[in-house]
Design a protein around this nucleic acid. Structure first.
Length: 895
RNA sequence: GGGUUCAUAGCUCAGUUGGUUAGAGCGUUGCAUUGACAUUGCAGAGGUCGGCAGUUCGAAUCUGCCUGAACCCACCA
C-alpha cells in the first residue's frame, strides 16, 4: 500500500481512545467475561467491593489492574474465569455523605424519620452508585458484569440476617454493656479496628485535689482535665510511701466539689506522672475496669455528640475540647493547676470521620471471636491459604492470637438492621427473628404473654458494621449463605485469588477467612495477594485531602488504559508500596507505540492481493528464527514462574524486554529485506507475524486493548477467535541453546563493531571491511553462514571469518569471547585513541586475572571449593591469559 | 512498650540454595534522523552492595552489634 493509505489505516502513533471503547463493547457484546459453572476448572475472584458511591482512585486502579491480569491469564489458560464485581454499601461512609448533603440543604438527620432518611440515602446511592463500575470498564477490567452484586441488595441483606441468626443461635453473638469506641461526630460505636492511634503532642496537667478535713492536697496528672467533672475516685499505689497515709481518706474533686475516696491499686505506676491517678470510670477503659473492681460510681458527663451533659454540672452543652480550655483556666484561677508538662501521647481517631474517639460505656451487640479465629489462624499458618508476600503471616498471626470480641452494632440507619425485637424494658426482653411476624410469635413464647402484638414490639434501631456483610462476600455473591448447597457456590467456592491492600487485612481478609470456615468449613480463597499503597514521589500516601493524587481517568485519557496499566505495574513490586510516577505511564504509552509501530512495519511489508497466514512454524535453517523462538520459550518459562510467585511486574518486564529488545531491535531488523524499501519475503513475514501473535498473547493480560486491536488487524477473526478468549501459549521448554549461543555471539560482535564506530567517530554509513579471527575453523564456518546477519546491522563492504588470518595494519580491534575483530580504518583511525582503548582493555583483563589467580593460588580454595567451581576459575585464567596475549598483539600490530 | 520489614547506581528496584570484577528501567552524557517508531536508534559514564566485627577457601547473600528508615499492634493516666 502507498504511504497515504498506510497512514490512514495505520497511523504513526497509536491512538487508544477509539480502540479501547470499541473493544470493550465487543467483549461485552460477546459475553466473554460471563461465566457459568461447567466442567472446566473454575477460577473465581471476588472484587474487593468499592464503596457504592465512590469514584475510581489510584488504589482501585492498581488493585483492579492486578486482578485483571490474573483473571485474563487464567481465562486464556482455559480456566472458567469468573471475576465477580460489586459495591459495598459502606454504612458509615455513605451515611456521612448523605448527612453532609442534607445539612447543605438545611436538613438535620435528627429531623428525619428513619424511612425518610433511607429514601434520601437510596436516592444518593442510585444517583452516584455504580459510577465506579463504569470506570472499571474504562480500565479494561474483565468482570462478569451480569453478576454484579451490592451488599445492601435484598438477597445479600437476607444473607447477612441469616448469618447473624446462625451466629446468635450458636452462641457467638451477644448483647452487652461494655466500654466501646464512640465516634462523637458520626455518633456511633466503632470496632477497635476502626480506631487509628496517632501520636500527638499533648499536655499532662498536674492538678491538686484538696483532702477533706485537712490542709493537704494530692496532685493527680491527666491529659484530659475536663473529665475531672466525672471523677469518682483517686487512686495510688498501695506501696507508694508518699501516699499511704492518704489511702481511705476523701479527696474533693475540684469544680464539682464531690467527695471521693482515695483508693489503692497496684495498677498505678508510681513512676509515672505524679503517681496519683484520677479515676473516671465512664470515660476511660482502664478507669472503668478499676471502677468495676472497686465498686465505684459511674458518672457519664458526655452527650453522644461529645458535648458536656447535665451530669458534668459545668460547661454544660460545650464541646469537650472547649470545656478542656475552660476548665484549665478555672483551675488556674483557683490555684489548683500546679504544672503543665509537654508529653507525646497516643490518641485514638475515628478511621472515617477523624474525630477523637471517646471510650464510652454502652449497650451494644458483640460477636465472640476466639473460637472463630482458630481455624482461620491455623490454615494461614500452614499455607492452606497462601499469603503473598508471606511476611504478612506474622502480623496476621499476632492479630488472630490476640483477637477480641467484635462490636458489630452501629448507631446508624444505612445498613443491615439488627434483627432483634424488644418486647419489654429489660435488657434481655428481646427475640431474634427474620420478620416481624416471626418476632411476635417468638416474643409471645418467650414472655408467656399470648396477647403480645406487633404494636408491643419494636425492632432494634441499629445496623450492623459494614464489615459484617463484607466478611461474607466470597460466599454471598454466589448466594452461598442462604442456599449453601446450590450449584454456584459448590462450583466457584473456594475462590482462587484475593487481591487487596494490607491495610484491610484485619477489617476484611481475616474476617472473611473466619466466616469461610464457620459457614462452609472451607477457606474462602486459596491465595491472598497483598499489594502496596500508592504513594507519590515524596512517599506520601495519595489522598484527596493532600491533592497529590492524579485522576486515573485523566491518566487513561492521556496514556491509554494499556499504557497506564503498564505504568502502574512497572512501579509495583509485590508487597511493597508503589511510588507512583507519571513518567512510568509515559513509558507505558511509549511501549504501546513501539508495539504499534512494529505491527505497522510488518503490515507495510504486506503486498496487496496476497494472502498471508501467520505461522509459528519457524524455519529450522534460519538462525534468527531459531533464536527468536527460543527467546520466547525462555521468557515464557520465566513468566510462568513469576505468575506462580505473584511477581507480575517481573513478568511484565520480561515480556517488555522480549518485545522491545529481542523482537523489535534484533528480530525485525534481521527480517527486513536486503534492499531498503523492498517488502520482506512473504515467508519471513508470515513467520514474523506468527511470532508477533505469540507476543500479543503473552502481552494481552497486561495490555488487553492494544493487543486485541492488533490481533484483529493481523487477520480477520470470528467472535470465537478473539484474543481475549484465545489459548495462552503453551510451548515446550527446550530452548535451542546452540542458536542462542551463536546469535548472542553475533550480537556481541555487532555491538563491539558499533562501539568502534562510535568511539572512532566513524559514521555508521561508512562501509567497513571486517576481519574476524575465530577460535576454530568450525566456528569460522558457522559464522560465515550467518554473515548475512551482519549485513543487516552494519554497513559491510567485505567480511571474512578465519581462524588464522593475517592481522591488517592500522586497524581498530576488539575481542569478543575469544574472537578478534579487526576493522581497518586507514586514515580514519586515531592511533593514540585506539592504543588507549586496547590498553584499558588489557588493564581490565589483568585485574580480572589477578583476582582469579588469587583464588587459584589459595590452596584452601582449591581444596574446599566444589570441583566445578575450581574448574570454572581455571578456565577463566586460561581465557584471561589468552585474551591478554591477543590484546597485546593487537597493540603491536597497530605499529 | 511489643512485633515485623527494609537499607544495592542520581531515582525506583532485581539479585533464587553463599561461587563471573554486581544487573534492569528511568534519568544522565556523546553520536545518529527523508520512511516502522524522536513516544526512535546506537554507544558510553555511573555502585568499596548503610557501618563495624564474625563465620567461611570464598559474603551483596549467613551471624552479631551499631546507625538510619518504614510499617503493624498495644487501654498506661
Amino acid at each position: 500500500m502507498n504511504e497515504q493509505q498506510l497512514n490512514d489505516e495505520i497511523p504513526k502513533h497509536y491512538d487508544p481512545t477509539e480502540t479501547e471503547d470499541k473493544w470493550y463493547a465487543y467483549w461485552e457484546e460477546h459475553q466473554y467475561f460471563h461465566s457459568e459453572p461447567d466442567d472446566r476448572e473454575p477460577f473465581a475472584v471476588v472484587i474487593p467491593p468499592p464503596n457504592v458511591t465512590g469514584v475510581l482512585h489510584m488504589g482501585h486502579m492498581l488493585n483492579n489492574t492486578i486482578q485483571d491480569v490474573l483473571v485474563r491469564r487464567a481465562r486464556m489458560q482455559g480456566k472458567n474465569a469468573c471475576w465477580v464485581p460489586g459495591t459495598d454499601h459502606a454504612s458509615i461512609a455513605t451515611e456521612a455523605k448523605v448527612v453532609q448533603k442534607l445539612r447543605k440543604q438545611g436538613i438535620k438527620k435528627s429531623d428525619l424519620s428513619r424511612d425518610k432518611f433511607m429514601d434520601h440515602a437510596w436516592d444518593w446511592t442510585n444517583e452516584h452508585g455504580g459510577i465506579i463500575l463504569q470506570q472499571l470498564r474504562t480500565l479494561g477490567a474483565s468482570c462478569d458484569w451480569k453478576r454484579t452484586r451490592f451488599t445492601l441488595e435484598e438477597e445479600l441483606y437476607e444473607a447477612v440476617i441469616d448469618c447473624f441468626i446462625k451466629l446468635y443461635d450458636d452462641g457467638f453473638i451477644y448483647r452487652g454493656k461494655r466500654m466501646i469506641n464512640w465516634d462523637p461526630q458520626a455518633q456511633t460505636a466503632l470496632s477497635d479496628e476502626e480506631v487509628i492511634h496517632k501520636e500527638v503532642q499533648s499536655k499532662l496537667y498536674h492538678v491538686r485535689y484538696p483532702i477533706k478535713n485537712s490542709d493537704e492536697y494530692v496532685t493527680i496528672a491527666t491529659t484530659r482535665p475536663e473529665t475531672i467533672l466525672a471523677d469518682t475516685a483517686v487512686c495510688v499505689h498501695p506501696d507508694d510511701e508518699r501516699y499511704t497515709h492518704l489511702i481511705g481518706k476523701r479527696a474533693i474533686i475540684p469544680m464539682v466539689e464531690r467527695e471521693v475516696e482515695i483508693i489503692a491499686d497496684d495498677y498505678v505506676d508510681p513512676e509515672y506522672g505524679t503517681g496519683c491517678l484520677k479515676i473516671t470510670p465512664a470515660h476511660d477503659t482502664n478507669d472503668y475496669d478499676l471502677g468495676q473492681k472497686h465498686g465505684l460510681e459511674i458518672i457519664d458527663m458526655l452527650n453522644a455528640d461529645g458535648t458536656i451533659s447535665e451530669a458534668g454540672q459545668f460547661y454544660v452543652g460545650k464541646d469537650r475540647f472547649e470545656a478542656r480550655k475552660l476548665i484549665i483556666k478555672d483551675l488556674k484561677d483557683q490555684d489548683l493547676l500546679v504544672d503543665v508538662e509537654e508529653m507525646p501521647n497516643k490518641v485514638g481517631y475515628s478511621e472515617r470521620t477523624d474525630a477523637v474517639i471517646e471510650p464510652r460505656l454502652s449497650l451494644q451487640w458483640f460477636c465472640r471471636m476466639d473460637e472463630l479465629s482458630k481455624p482461620a489462624l491455623e490454615n494461614v499458618m500452614n499455607d492452606n491459604i497462601q499469603f503473598h508476600p508471606a511476611k504478612f503471616k506474622n502480623s496476621y498471626a499476632h492479630w488472630m492470637e490476640n483477637i477480641r470480641d467484635w462490636c458489630i452494632s452501629r448507631q446508624l440507619w444505612w445498613g443491615h438492621r439488627i434483627p432483634a425485637w424488644y418486647f419489654g424494658d429489660e435488657p434481655d426482653e428481646y427475640v431474634i427473628a427474620r420478620t416481624e411476624d416471626e418476632a411476635v410469635e417468638k416474643a409471645r413464647e418467650k414472655s408467656g404473654n399470648a396477647n403480645l402484638s406487633s404494636d408491643d414490639l419494636h425492632q432494634d434501631e441499629d445496623v450492623l458494621d459494614t464489615w459484617f456483610s463484607s466478611w461474607l462476600w466470597p460466599m454471598s455473591v454466589f448466594d452461598g449463605i442462604r442456599n449453601s448447597e446450590n450449584e454456584e457456590i459448590n462450583y466457584y467456592y473456594p475462590t482462587k485469588d484475593l487481591v487487596t491492600a494490607p491495610e484491610i487485612m484485619f477489617f476484611w481478609v481475616a474476617r472473611m477467612i473466619m466466616a469461610g470456615y464457620y459457614f462452609r468449613d472451607e477457606k474462602p480463597f486459596s491465595n491472598v495477594y497483598f499489594h502496596g499503597i500508592v504513594r507519590d514521589e515524596q512517599r506520601r500516601k495519595m489522598s484527596k485531602s493532600l491533592g497529590n493524587s492524579p485522576d486515573p481517568l485523566e491518566l487513561i485519557k492521556q496514556y491509554g488504559a494499556d499504557g497506564t496499566r503498564v505504568g502502574m505495574l512497572f512501579a509495583s513490586p509485590a508487597g511493597n508500596d508503589l511510588l507512583f510516577d507519571e513518567n512510568l505511564c509515559e513509558q507505558g504509552r511509549n511501549f504501546s507505540n513501539k508495539i504499534w509501530n512494529a505491527f505497522r512495519f510488518l503490515m507495510m511489508n504486506k503486498q496487496d492481493g496476497t494472502d498471508y497466514s501467520p505461522t509459528t512454524d519457524i524455519d529450522p535453517e534460519n538462525l534468527a528464527d531459531r533464536w527468536m523462538m527460543s527467546r520466547i520459550k525462555q521468557t515464557l518459562t520465566g513468566v510462568e514462574q513469576d505468575f506462580e510467585n505473584y511477581r507480575l511486574n517481573e513478568a511484565l518486564k520480561k515480556i517488555y524486554s522480549l518485545v522491545w529488545d529481542d523482537f523489535c531491535d534484533w528480530y525485525i531488523e534481521v527480517s527486513k529485506a536486503d534492499t531498503p524499501g523492498e517488502p520482506m519475503p512473504a515467508e519471513n513475514l508470515e513467520r514474523a507475524l506468527g511470532l508477533f501473535e505469540l507476543l500479543m498473547k503473552m502481552l494481552h493480560p497486561f495490555m488487553p486493548f492494544l493487543t486485541e486491536e492488533i490481533w484483529q488487524r493481523i487477520q480477520v477473526r470470528s467472535p470465537e477467535e478473539a484474543l481475549t478468549i484465545s489459548q495462552w501459549p503453551e510451548l515446550d521448554a527446550d530452548a535451542d541453546e546452540d542458536a542462542i549461543d551463536l546469535f548472542s555471539l553475533i550480537q556481541e560482535q555487532v555491538s563491539a563493531i558499533r562501539n568502534i564506530q562510535s568511539e572512532m567517530g566513524v559514521s555508521p554509513k561508512t562501509e567497513l571491511t571486517l576481519h574476524i579471527k575465530t577460535n576454530s575453523q568450525e566456528q569460522a564456518e558457522k559464522l560465515d553462514e550467518q554473515s548475512w546477519i551482519f549485513t543487516k546491522f552494519l554497513s559491510v563492504g567485505s567480511l571474512e571469518f578465519n581462524p588464522d588470518l593475517t592481522k591488517p595494519k592500522a586497524s581498530a580491534s576488539a575481542l569478543v569471547k575469544g574472537t578478534e575483530i579487526f576493522v581497518p580504518l586507514e586514515g580514519l583511525i586515531d592511533l593514540d585513541k585506539e592504543r588507549e582503548r586496547i590498553q584499558n582493555e588489557i588493564k581490565k583483563t589483568q585485574g580480572f586475572l589477578k583476582s582469579v589467580e588469587g583464588k587459584l593460588s589459595n590452596a584452601k580454595f582449591v581444596e574446599n571449593a566444589p570441583d566445578d567451581v575450581v574448574d570454572r576459575e581455571r578456565q577463566k585464567k586460561v581465557d584471561a591469559l589468552s585474551d591478554i596475549e591477543k590484546l597485546k598483539q593487537m597493540l603491536e600490530n597497530l605499529g
